[in-house]
Simulated assay, not measured.
Amino acid sequence: MSAQPQTIFFLGATGYLGSQFLLLLNSKLPDLHVIALVRNLTPERKEQLQNVYSNISFVEGTLDDDAIIQEQVAKADITINCASSDHNASVKSTLAGLETGSKNHPGKPPLYIHVSGCGIVSDNARGEPVEYVKEWSDIGLDLKQCDQTNTHLDSDIPIVEAGSRTENPVRTIIYFPAQIYGLGQGVQKTTLWLRIFLDMMKKLGFAGTWGPGANAMNNIHVKDCAMGLYLVLNAALEGKADEGPEGLYFAASSEPRMTYHAWTKVMGDYLHSKGIIKEGGSRPMPPEVVDPLGHYGWSLLGGNQFVKAERLARLGWEPVETKKLPLLESFPDALDEALKE
């Protein structure tokens, strides 16, 4: 890492993973100056984020603010996107800003770390049991070999292409978390998928899945996920990270994968025991719930996603918190927090 403090333009600072990562960064690399893009920038939001990361300033805006994102990315040494992994417009704005920044600073290509997800490797099993599921490694991973109808790829592939060019070069890394869970310590305490499923369950009166819910994916505690992201950033600052076409990092433990039916049943039983829904257990959700999300929903929530985080292992990463608190044991505290929220 250079002696001069560097600047990070940060998207998703108030989110679940983003704010957990900033807490960790505050203890590890507090000299980095973070500029956070924040919508509805109230004094309360400023205070929340200053409590998470002390060396922070703010730009008010949203992921749709093309000019703001381009301007900030072009000025920053590093851009980290922990916001929506499927917001194509913000990715295009970011890539345009990176190209401008690279052009304005010859010999000093900017770094872009983008948080995507393991939905790229979904087998689209539609919740049905299957005899064989491929386990994907991030070593030798080629995004163009994934099912091109899967989520995230329309944003991820242009990022890899940007990190492959020689004119106005950009350093790119994509981070692919598995099913993130656990209570966070940052601004947002609970994971988005938990809140989405909780909302569906409260409306339906029961817990449910896309199809029979026989599909599964790897999981990772939010603290382990944040640590992995920190290790990737630190390796990049030291010039030791895999980047460009090789800069693809799965973030996943090898702890037992739980089917969607298994973990929604735990949610259903817990919510039923508290009188929040009418029945326990889990069953397939009706068409009026799953159909509006179409192929996106079936691919992301009805497919198997089996991965090995081999590049993180090379950096010495271990899923310490995931081993301490398995997914199914995390639900009581997480659901109680989500219900308060």
Rank of each mutant, 00 (worst) to 15 (best):
316 G>R: 00
336 D>R: 12
183 L>Y: 09
114 H>E: 10
123 D>S: 10
300 L>A: 13
99 E>R: 03
283 R>P: 04
193 W>G: 06
111 L>C: 00
264 T>P: 03
338 A>P: 03
251 A>L: 02
80 I>Y: 06
268 G>N: 10
11 L>P: 02
244 G>L: 06
60 E>I: 09
48 Q>W: 07
258 M>G: 02
51 N>V: 14
94 T>C: 11
155 S>L: 01
5 P>I: 01
275 G>N: 01
329 E>V: 12
19 S>F: 10
5 P>N: 01
216 A>R: 14
139 I>W: 08
302 G>Y: 03
188 Q>M: 06
289 V>M: 00
167 E>R: 06
246 E>N: 13
174 I>W: 07
332 P>Q: 08
214 A>H: 10
282 S>R: 07
218 N>R: 07
298 W>G: 02
74 A>P: 04
72 Q>S: 09
234 N>Y: 14
323 K>Y: 05
304 N>T: 07
338 A>H: 06
129 P>G: 04
210 W>K: 00
306 F>S: 15
316 G>A: 04
9 F>E: 10
89 A>L: 14
236 A>V: 10
149 T>H: 04
339 L>D: 03
59 V>E: 15
45 R>D: 02
282 S>V: 05
337 E>P: 04
136 W>H: 13
298 W>C: 01
46 K>Y: 07
329 E>R: 15
138 D>K: 02
292 P>G: 02
339 L>W: 02
268 G>L: 02
218 N>E: 14
67 A>F: 09
100 T>G: 02
330 S>D: 00
180 I>F: 01
172 T>S: 08
160 V>I: 15
259 T>L: 07
307 V>Q: 10
340 K>N: 13
6 Q>C: 00
336 D>H: 07
66 D>Y: 14
209 T>E: 08
119 G>R: 15
87 H>R: 09
288 E>L: 13
190 T>L: 14
117 G>I: 12
207 A>D: 01
319 P>L: 08
209 T>A: 09
186 G>W: 13
87 H>E: 11
